[in-house]
Nucleic acid binder design. Structure first.
Lengths: 158, 158
DNA sequence: ATTCATGCAAACCATTTGCAGATCA
DNA sequence: TGATCTGCAAATGGTTTGCATGAAT
């Protein structure tokens, strides 16, 4: 699916709920799509959006991210560094979206693998709990990480 | 291990690093031990501690929790409700500490089961990443949860 | 004496909100 | 026209920090 097709799909989701796809929202979506693996903070999204749309206000970015979050279009997450971070949600990867967080250099590597479907079934049976989403983060360090000087394949979280 | 024995053990960990077990810190530890499964926020810890030690300041509680967190005596976590929550860490359960978060009533149920040891081995082999800790939270809902009126076995997170 | 710890109040900073004007259906 | 949306600035609220005092070795 191209970026335009994705935006178009999201546009339909928005209008279905009575929301409008304004220029501000469209550009915010573009930024999120262009940085799909980066776990951007609201401030970072704001700066990137402002480069294309200087009049935008920070509050609008927060409101957009909040809205997209409620509609489950983006996922709001927290790595414990005091800021919320956002990622576009890819439904096909709902059960395959985990993180390796390196405590030496701060790198956050995203890994996609289906590890939990089995466990989720057991949870439903054993606890009577219907899982709609999960979060699985590992902290530790990369064997080849020379503290603070990792090859950064993803956005680092200080 | 009794509470006193646990405090004694932690006292040794503190003095080993040059920190003192002050009355404030001891009472804070007591509160954490008495509420081991409750995921208390700093404010909640503060209120409980103040009941036993009215002169204590909120900043001291924050500093104590931060200290214990750095020493890996408590675990600092975040369920996305805007406040940090704290739990005493039990090393024997390091790999068996997960959460079921009910989106209907806010209940956070803690479950202890060893699901990830296997996966952690695979991560070390496949990614060259040595796991020291992890976090596994499931969101969803309990089948018997009549929204907002769950049997609360644990501390709810609004 | 020196180092560490505390309480208080002020500062900080990410996020939210009130409001008046702009935009879209 | 009425609803939604935006930008700005102010408010909020959890957390941190500066500083002078207090405790412990």
């Amino acid at each position: 699916m191209t970026i335009l097709e994705q935006i178009d799909k999201i546009n339909r989701q928005l209008t279905a709920k009575g929301y409008k796809l304004t220029s501000q929202r469209e550009i915010t979506l573009q930024i999120l799509l262009e940085n799909e693996n980066d776990h951007l903070s609201a401030e970072e999204v704001f700066m990137l959006v402002r480069a294309k749309f200087p009049e935008i206000g920070l509050a609008t970015v927060y409101r957009t991210l909040e809205l997209l979050s409620e509609l489950h279009i983006v996922e709001k997450m927290n790595f414990g560094d005091g800021v919320a971070r956002f990622d576009l949600r890819d439904d096909s990867h709902a059960h395959m979206h985990h993180h390796l967080i390196c405590t030496d250099c701060g790198l956050v590597k995203e890994i996609k693998d289906d590890w939990l479907s089995e466990i989720e079934k057991r949870i439903e049976n054993e606890f009577g709990f219907k899982v709609t989403d999960h979060r699985l983060d590992f902290t530790g360090s990369f064997n080849n990480c020379t503290s603070g000087d990792c090859k950064r394949k993803s956005k680092a979280v200080s």
